[in-house]
Design a protein around this nucleic acid. Sequence first.
DNA 1: CTGAAAGCGCTTACAG
DNA 2: CTGAAAGCGCTTACAG
Lengths: 330, 330
Amino acid sequence: MNDVARAAGVSLKTVSNVLNDYEFIRPATKQRVQDAIAELGYEANLTARSLRSGKTSMLGLVLSDLAAPYYAELAAKLMKAASRRGYRVLVEQSDAQSEAELNALRGPFRQLTDGLLFTPLSIDADAIAERAGKKPLVMLGEHIMDPRFDLVTMKNEEAAAALTKHLLNSGRRRIAVLGASPEESAGSAGLRLNGYRRALEQAGVAFDPALIASGVWRRDGGAGAVAGLLDSGVQFDAVFGLNDVLALGALHELLIRGLRVPQDVAVAGFDDIDEARFASPSLTTVSPGMDEIAERSITLLLDRLAGRETAGQGVHIEAGFELKIRESAP
Amino acid sequence: MNDVARAAGVSLKTVSNVLNDYEFIRPATKQRVQDAIAELGYEANLTARSLRSGKTSMLGLVLSDLAAPYYAELAAKLMKAASRRGYRVLVEQSDAQSEAELNALRGPFRQLTDGLLFTPLSIDADAIAERAGKKPLVMLGEHIMDPRFDLVTMKNEEAAAALTKHLLNSGRRRIAVLGASPEESAGSAGLRLNGYRRALEQAGVAFDPALIASGVWRRDGGAGAVAGLLDSGVQFDAVFGLNDVLALGALHELLIRGLRVPQDVAVAGFDDIDEARFASPSLTTVSPGMDEIAERSITLLLDRLAGRETAGQGVHIEAGFELKIRESAP
DNA sequence: CTGAAAGCGCTTACAG
DNA sequence: CTGAAAGCGCTTACAG
C-alpha cells in the first residue's frame, strides 16, 4: 500500500480512500491511484483489514453433517446467496454433538466469522443465550423456538399435516412414521409428528403409537426402522419418513422385501432433495422452500450485521412449502 | 494479552511463549500465566496472529458444486481430516466456470488460506502454473496430470476397465456410456472412457461410437442421455454412467419406460456415493477409496506447508479402488 | 528462561 | 478533498 501511495504520489490515506470507495475524491487522483494499483498488481491484505476493522466478511454455518443431502444442498445455496453480497461461508460440522455446538459459539470459529447461521441439535436456548456473545446469530431449523433469537424455519407442522392428509385422502389408514425422537418434542421431528397427529384427528383416525418408529435421519436409519416394523408384525399401508433420506431408506427396504410401492405401501418423505425426483418410484414429499430459506436467512443475518435491530426481539421467518405428489404415494 | 501479562506479573513475550508452547519456560511461570488466562477468559485474537505470522490455519477447497453428492461427501471427509490436524476448510464453488477457477487461485480466497485443494475443471495446467503463486497447491481429481503439480487421484482407467469387464463377463455386449465429453480426453470422463475401451478390446468386442452419449454429470443429465439413446433406437443391454448420479438418473428413466433392470438393461456407475447402496435396485459401482483420498490429500498439503519438497517435482498419489457389485448389474 | 521494541498492513479519527 | 499519526493484537528477532 505504501508502494502504491509512492507510485501515485499520494499519501496512504488517499490509497485507502480509493480502496474503500470514499466519495469525495478527485477523479484525477483516483485514476492515478488505480493505475498504480494495476501496475504494481497490488492486492489489499484482508487479514490486516480484518484486524483493523474487526470484520472478516465471513459468515459461519454450523450443521451436523455436510454429507447429508439436505444440508449439502442448503449449504450450496447459502454460499451462493452470501457470495452475491460479498460474504464467504465457513462451514463447521457438529456431528450433532453438544460439545461441538458449544464450541462453535465461541472461540476460533466465532472469531473468524462476523455472524452465525446455526442449526442447534443438541443444546438448548439457555445454553446458547449464555454463550452467544454479541455477534449476530440466526437460528436455522426449528429446534430452538425462543423469542430471544432470530429464526428462519418452515411450516413444519402445517406441511406434515398436509402430507398426512394427502395420504389419508388416498385411502391409507395405517400410516407409519419413521425417525421420531421420543425425548424431543420441539425439533423438526416433534413438529412434524404433531402435524401428523393433527391430520389424523381431523380425519377421525385413531393415533396408534405402535406405528411410530425412531431412527437416525439417514438412509440406513429409515431402512432399519421400517425393517423393525415389518419384523414386529405391525400392519401399515403407508410410511411417512420425517425426512427424505429416511423415506428413501425405507423405500429400499420395502422393495427388497417384495412389497410393492405404492400398491402395498405408500411412501412419503420431507425435504424434496434432488434425489427424491429420481428415486424409483419417485418420492412424494414436501418441498420446504429451500431457496427462500437460504435467501432470507442470509438477508436477515446481514441486516443484523448492519445493525438493524428489532428492540431485542428475535424475528421469526417461516418459509412457504409445497406438496410434491409423485409415484410413491399418488 | 496485555491484561493477562499484567495479571500474571510477566511480560507480553512470556504470555506469547505460553500460548505457543515454547519449551523453555519455568513451570511456575507457565502456571501463573495459564491461571490468568483462565481467570480473564482470554482468547487469542486469530486475525492478529495471522497478520503477524502470515498463516491462517485455513485450507481452501475449490470444487464445482457442493450439492453434488460426491463433492458433499468428499468435503465432509476433508473437513474432518483437516480438523484433526488443527485446520479449517474454506469451500469455494466454481460451478465449473473458468473465471471462478482462476479467481480462486489468487485474490481474497487465496489470501485467506494457507494452501489449496483444487479440482480444476475448466482451466489447464499452464493457466494454473501461471497464477499458482508460491502457496502450496494440491490437485484433486484427474483433469490435470502435470508433473509440475501435486496430485491426488484414483485409478480411473483401471477401475473403469474392471467395471466394464464385469459387465462383459455377465454377458453384456452393447454397453452404453453416459456422460462422455467429446472435447476432453484428460479428465475423469476421458480416462474412464479409455478404461471402457480397453476392456472391450481385451474381450474382442468392437467399440461402437453410437453407444457413447454425452451429458452433464447430474441425475437429469443421465436421464436425458439414456432417453436420447432410447429415442434414437440404439440397442444396448447395459449402461455405464461415468459417475453415480448419471447412472441413477438413467436408472430412473429406464424404469419409467418400463424396462427391467438388470434383466433388460444392466446399470453401473462410478463413485459409490451413499445413495448407490439404497437405490432400487441397488447400484453396481466403483468405490474410489474416498477416505484414502481425503486423508492423503490433507497429509500431502500439510507436508507442503511444512516445507517438505520433492525438488520441484509434483507427487502423484493414486488411491485404490474396489468394485461394488449390486443388484443393478450382478 | 524472560523483557523491551519493532512491525505485520491496514483503517480511523483528527487536522488542515 | 488529502496528509501525518496512532493503533488493531499479536509474533519475532534481539538482548540480557
